[in-house]
Amino acid sequence: MKLRLHTQPEVPLEAETISPDQLAGKSEAEASALPLYHGKEQVALGDFFTVTGPMRNGAVEVEGDLSRVKLLGHAMSSGRLHIRGNVGAHLGAEMSGGEIAVDGDAGDWLGREMSGGRITVKGNAGHMVGGAVRGSAVGIQGGEIIVHGNAGNEIGHGMRRGLIAIGGDAGDFAGVNMKAGTVIVLGHLGIRPGAGMKRGSIVSGRNTELLPTFSYDCVYQPTFLRYYLFYLRRLGLAVENDYLSGPYQRWSGDGLEMNRGEILLYAGPH
């Protein structure tokens, strides 16, 4: 099934109904009748999108500049959602399965509180990738988020399980308060990565100064990382050969918590 944005929303458009779960088995007419929220107004999907259906093997394509469209693929559990263009906030929030691919950039709260499935973004992502909402201690609990470009602050905030990989740079407080899971940033980390982390791994392809509550352990060549990086390469992320086998500094932290988290910083040549 293909959805093409024919009218730019004037205010944010909330479109949690645009997901394979909701569109499954719907005719073009039925799909066009699904409710969306244009600001405070309830509108029909057809008011903004031209639908050419039907949905085959769970695949939905959405085309256009969707940077004002929020909550696409919200809570989706299966199928494929392919977004040709930029997309707004909360893409794939609370998703538990299936796959989302974005050709352009994604907004804030990408994969917020997701528990399964995979999101791949070719461009950049905003803040709080795989993060928690305010007041909640738990962010992404499973699944994979792969961003080829850069990401903003607080990626993996409160992360409990899963994988977040950023091909470019990440903002401040990457992996803040994380409980477990893996955050890989091939480019630069912003300041204060892993603040308050209990367990889990944060990896970066560049060196950076860590908080005073992280302690240096050693330089070594982590085998598990090799597997992760090969896997990311298979998923289409450009991973330099040096990173695969190169030496990494290992730091433990956060000393204010259980000190069972690790930050690995690539220590080889570029």
């Binding site: 204060r192 603040a195 100064e209 005073p212 509550t213 204010l256």
Partner: peptide, 24 residues
């Protein structure tokens, strides 16, 4: 400020903080 507060929390919990905290 954050680094300073984090160091203070560390000291309050009786953990050691490196002298390099001054340069930071």
């Amino acid at each position: 400020d954050f680094e300073l507060l984090w160091a203070l929390r560390s000291l309050v919990k009786g953990r050691r903080v490196d002298a390099s905290i001054e340069t930071r």
